[in-house]
Structure formats: C-alpha cells, structure tokens
C-alpha cells in the first residue's frame, strides 16, 4: 500500500502519463497541428510586417510584430490549456473510456489536477516552440523585455484559465452530443473579446462589456506591458490581483459545478460512452 500523499500524486500522475502516451501515439497529428499553428502565427505576423507597405503610412513594425507575436503565442498557450481541460470529458467519450475512468476510485479534484498539470506542460512546450521559431524567423529583439513580469502573469493567469476550463468541461458532461460544440463556441468567443490580436477598445460597445469577464484580457494586457514596455510587477499589480481573485473563485466554483453536474449525469444516465 502506498502512503497517502504519494498515492494521491501517483493517481494524479495517471492522467498526466496517459495523456503523454496519447500524445506520443498521435504524434503525426501533433506535428501537423504544430505546423498549422506555426504557419498561422507566421501569416498573422507577416501582415504586421507588411502594414507599412500596404497602407503607405509609417508604422513601428517592430512594435506591431511583437504585439501580434505576444497575442498569437499567448493565445496558443491559453487556448491549448482551455481545450485540454474543457475537452477532458468529451475526449473520454470519444475514446469510449468515460465509464471506466469515472468508476475508478479517484476523487474528481485529483482527476482534474492531473489533467491540468498535463495541459500546462504540453501547452508551455508547444507555445515556447512556436515563440522561439517566430523569434528566429523575424529576428525580434527582446533585450528590453521584462520576462519576470510576463512569467508572473502567465503563472497567476493560468489558474484562472483552468477554473474557466473546468466550468466549460461540464458542458460535454451534461450535453452528450452538443457539449463539445458548446465549449468550442466559448473558445472562439474568448478569442474575439479578449484583445488577442487587437486592443479591446476597437470592439463595439456590446462586445467590449464582455472583455473584463475573460481572464485572457488581463493576461494579454499585462504580458504586453512586460514584454513590449519592459514594465515591472508594480505596473501589472492591479491585473495580477484581478487574475488571482478570478482563479480563487473560478477553480473552487468549477470543481463544485463539476461535482454537481456529475451527480446530475448519474441521475439521468448521461455518463454513457455515446450520446
């Protein structure tokens, strides 16, 4: 018998190891998906590089490319975290393992912790590779960037993103056929309202009101302060507090909602492998 604590770690690691094994076995898709993401990032950045030529107006190209690079890399990271956690149930349903996993003697919190740890590791590696490749291709100078600020924002912001993803993961649990589609709608809405490629000020008023509800808005704004302006932690303290509060509320709320949704699914027979 394992000691308590070691046993919990071992259980949470089951989900990490399983997801890593699945990534290895689907390596062809991983490579294709990575190439797609890299090409998308480059396409967006070439628009920034060509803006002066397109408009005929003087543009700070270095600033504009870096502005979009931060948007595209952070979106690559945060959306991957969101997708992996939000689709954890949908994935089990596709593979046909939902019943096996949910009848295992594992507290749901440990299940989600294991999944989140993998989501963060996977997304960090993937986004760092994209960031590095784009830096090399565009020869971007980051000498004035404050990486400590950016790192602190990403760490604190990731927690709130995980909380949001756990809430979204409930949808495939409750709606056997349409749940995954609903999470996709949330995913794309976050992309629109969070200022990924353009400041939120350009959004129409009715969309702009949604921006403060998305943790990505604060993450992007503060990472840009750190990497574009070289701003210190004091300059992003307000956003860090908002992100910390969001994380502190969303993670327990997500776990509670998930537990209640699982109970509802058990009462109504929705934990089946197919719709």
């Amino acid at each position: 018998m394992m000691l308590t604590g070691t046993r919990e770690l071992n259980t949470a690691y089951a989900f990490f190891e399983r997801n890593w094994n699945l990534t290895r076995r689907y390596m062809g898709w991983e490579v294709a998906w990575f190439v797609y993401s890299l090409m998308s990032a480059l396409t967006i950045l070439f628009i920034a590089a060509a803006t002066e030529k397109i408009t005929g107006q003087p543009v700070d190209t270095r600033f504009f490319v870096l502005y979009l690079l931060i948007g595209t890399t952070m979106w690559s990271y945060l959306s991957a975290v969101f997708d992996i956690v939000a689709e954890t149930i949908a994935w089990e349903r596709w593979e046909g393992t939902i019943e096996y996993t949910l009848m295992a003697p594992v507290p749901r919190a440990l299940h989600l912790i294991g999944t989140c740890c993998y989501a963060i590791t996977y997304s960090v590696v993937r986004s760092a590779l994209i960031f590095g490749a784009v830096l090399l291709i565009f020869g971007i100078d980051l000498a004035h960037a404050n990486f400590i600020t950016a790192l602190a924002v990403v760490v604190v912001g990731s927690v709130s993103m995980i909380g949001l993803a756990i809430v979204a993961a409930v949808l495939p649990l409750l709606f056997t056929e349409r749940g995954a589609q609903m999470t996709f709608v949330i995913h794309s809405s976050l992309l629109l309202v969070s200022g990924v490629y353009a400041p939120i000020d350009v959004l129409p008023g009715w969309l702009r009101v949604l921006a403060p509800l998305s943790p990505i808005t604060y993450i992007l704004r503060s990472v840009r302060v750190g990497l574009l302006d070289g701003g210190g932690l004091d300059q992003v303290a307000g956003d860090l507090v908002v992100l910390a509060v969001m994380g502190a509320l969303l993670v327990p709320a997500g776990l509670w909602i998930f537990r209640e949704a699982e109970r509802f699914a058990k009462r109504t027979g929705r934990l089946k492998r197919s719709g």
Partner: peptide, 21 residues
Amino acid sequence: AAFFKKLSPMENLMYAGRLYG
C-alpha cells in the same frame, strides 16, 4: 472493451494501476 485503443495493453494497464493506487 473500454480502452484507449491507440495505447498498448501495458500503457492501458499502467493507467488502470495508478488509478487504483
């Protein structure tokens, strides 16, 4: 048989073993 079909029997067993402590 509810398995991750892309994974090997050993990988599936490893997953099950960890889940059950």
